[in-house]
Write a protein that binds this DNA or RNA. Structure first.
Lengths: 326, 326
DNA sequence: TTGTACGCGTTATCAC
DNA sequence: GTGATAACGCGTACAA
């Protein structure tokens, strides 16, 4: 690895001068600048970011903590974050937390050990000491925490929309799959849904779920039609769960959407490809990622930021698991 | 941030001693060790990895370069890599390359600037100077490069299997979707398939594709039944493309698998959830990721490694887009 | 306009 | 057993 000294020697100047041309700080004669630049090119020098980081006590690294990149919702978030960060010259250290606080703590620790300058996290424990004691900017993605910086979709409204749409389309005996208790946005959509249902005086049943795993979901799907046999509308906690419900309905010979309507949440790529394709509440995942990155960059580069909370709208995506509105 | 000096001061020893207890190098009296450990806990000290990295000229960071995390095949790879790396105390710097050599170069550069100790890359340009000049271990994942370390599935055999299975199940006029020309494993499965077809004397048509995007795939799907109207079997370059074909067949009122059989490649999570579910050639993506990580770790930690090439088997996953074998 | 010298936090070498 | 100290590569006072 070439160092700044090599450049200095080759250009016959001091390292300070080389540093000046690299960082465009301080005066440097046009000719010497040229000599230095030539030398840099000549030996193909690139500055050692580690040394920089040590001296400045900050790197160009961002920590990204997601529950599980294998869950189709998160790659979109990740890609949004990465694209924006990349444009600004920041790089990502990435980890899967599995919604596990210990794992998160472990990652956050190594993040700061590496002089990371900011973190983006989809955590269920935003109030944890891990985050509250952190001295670098953090933005919560797809999660909220009082007035800490965060980017999320208006999932509560999403829940309301789901309820409204399914009722408008004629479902009268609705079963709601309430998402995992420890995942806040899952609870929020649930709350939004029952809020509307209560208001409308529609009866509904609730099945509590504890994960977003498809395999688990198959059980809950069975449970629906087992316990609440006359269900004619299902509001699922996300698209994966909705898919399991769809398949179970199919297995039982129920017509979708004629006998049962199904609404998912997220609009992951899968949803449009199913037959029938899944009606769902869309979260703009990629944009959420980009926004989170943008917000973090602001937090890092500016001392003041006015909008610390960014809420993005969700929208109903009408596809084939709901009936046409008349 | 607390430093080793703070610990030294608190324990009333020199930094050298602290360093010794941390790294378990050299002798240190039991009592002083205890004092140091107490101090470390007391002020909650964790070593600065950046300083370490600067001194040792190597970090605990690994670079991971994938084409696009948004393509459902790659999250599984990524997760496999991450899990294994995490177990060994290594962290990942991650980037999407978009199969773009310039972007790759840019990432690799910043990787080495950060004293990364190894890289895992799914590149189309393994022979590029970028990689050949790299002085740190690299393993190619889902790609090959002569005798450079690499981990990949036996996709050529996968192509053969696909051809054999579809023929065994009665297809006689087969259309093959040849994957993007610049993606080696895509070509390999194509080669495997025609190898068998030629051998068997089965006629087939080929449609050249240039991406794995679903939107693009819709066009090629149309093209199949447009140009080769009597096609009764389709070997797709991957599951995403196969899905587009499936939907097009459905749109045209063709019965699958009765009129047309379809075989995909990869076995992404989506495939089992379609109706009819997709028969496909399974790549053990998660395991590939784990293996790649394992191999890289060996390369880093040992000076000699016997198995530099790891080829994993693929397997036919029989689902509903192929007929039952009689 | 340019160069010298120090410090960032750590580890390793060499005295003691 | 333990402590000074040089070195890792860089950026910045400060001096020249």
């Amino acid at each position: 690895m070439k160092t700044i000294k090599d450049v200095a020697r080759m250009a016959e100047v001091s390292v300070a001068t080389v540093s000046r041309v690299i960082n465009e700080s301080g005066y440097v004669n046009v000719d010497t600048r040229k000599r230095v630049e030539a030398a840099i090119k000549e030996i193909n020098y690139t500055p050692n970011e580690v040394a920089r980081s040590l001296y400045k006590r900050k790197s160009k690294l961002i920590g990204l903590l997601l529950p599980d990149i294998t869950n189709p919702f998160f790659p979109q978030l990740a890609r949004g974050v990465e694209d924006r960060m990349q444009e600004h010259g920041y790089r990502l250290i990435f980890g899967n937390s599995d919604e596990n606080e210990v794992k998160e703590l472990d990652y956050i620790r190594t993040f700061v050990q590496n002089n990371i300058i900011g973190v983006i996290s989809s955590t269920n424990y935003p109030e944890s000491d891990i985050y509250q004691k952190l001295k670098i900017p953090i933005v919560f993605l797809d999660r909220t925490s009082d007035d800490n910086p965060s980017v999320y979709a208006d999932v509560r409204e999403g829940g309301r929309i789901a309820a409204r749409e399914i009722v408008d389309r004629g479902s009268k005996r609705i079963t709601i799959l309430q998402g995992p208790a420890h995942i806040k946005p899952a609870q929020d959509r649930y709350l939004g849904a029952i809020e509307v249902l209560d208001e409308l005086g529609i009866t509904y049943n609730v099945i509590q779920t504890s994960s977003f795993s498809y395999t688990d979901a198959e059980q809950w799907a069975k449970e629906i039609f087992d316990k609440y046999i006359d269900t004619d509308g299902v509001i699922a906690s996300n698209d994966i769960i909705a898919t399991a419900v769809l398949r179970e309905a199919y297995r039982l010979g129920k017509a979708v959407p004629e006998d049962v309507q199904i609404i998912g949440f997220d609009d992951i790529p899968l949803s449009s490809l199913l037959s029938p394709s899944l009606s769902t509440i869309r979260q703009p995942a990629y944009d959420m990622g980009r926004e989170a990155a943008g917000l973090l960059i602001k937090l890092i580069e500016q001392d003041k930021v006015d909008e610390k909370i960014i809420q993005l709208p969700v929208s109903f995506v009408e596809r084939e698991t709901t009936r046409r509105k008349n």
